[in-house]
Amino acid sequence: MLGPGVSWYLGIAAFLFGIGALGVLLRRNPLIVLLSLEIMLNGSNLALIAFSRQHGNGDGQIFALAVMAVAASEVVVGLGLIVSLNRKRLALDVDKLSTLRG
């Protein structure tokens, strides 16, 4: 194929995944956490598409489309939660939302 080999794309995918993980673990604003989660999902999507191209098999793209649908659903629910938090005038800070503490 033209251009860089599959391994370059995989490197980007791994980096995106790591950056997304870092965002999820470090940031305190739930919106940013959701966005970081999206980054992670996109990273794995990229890996899927890359492997699909390498094997010449369309299955990876199907999987990536399913992931996209699921990501969309999860964003809907997550944003619904954040809106509810906002309505209840709670702090939008994941560290403060700890009433499930043991």
Binding site: L34, E38, I49, S52, R53, A64, M68, A71, V75
Partner: peptide, 25 residues
């Protein structure tokens, strides 16, 4: 990577719908 449909879906669905929703919120 020759995944034309996925690319289009990404732009339409993800960037178009999901991110717009995000910006809304």
């Amino acid at each position: 990577l020759s995944a034309e449909f996925v690319a289009a879906a990404q732009v339409l669905v993800y960037a178009g719908a999901v991110m717009v929703m995000f910006l809304f919120v």
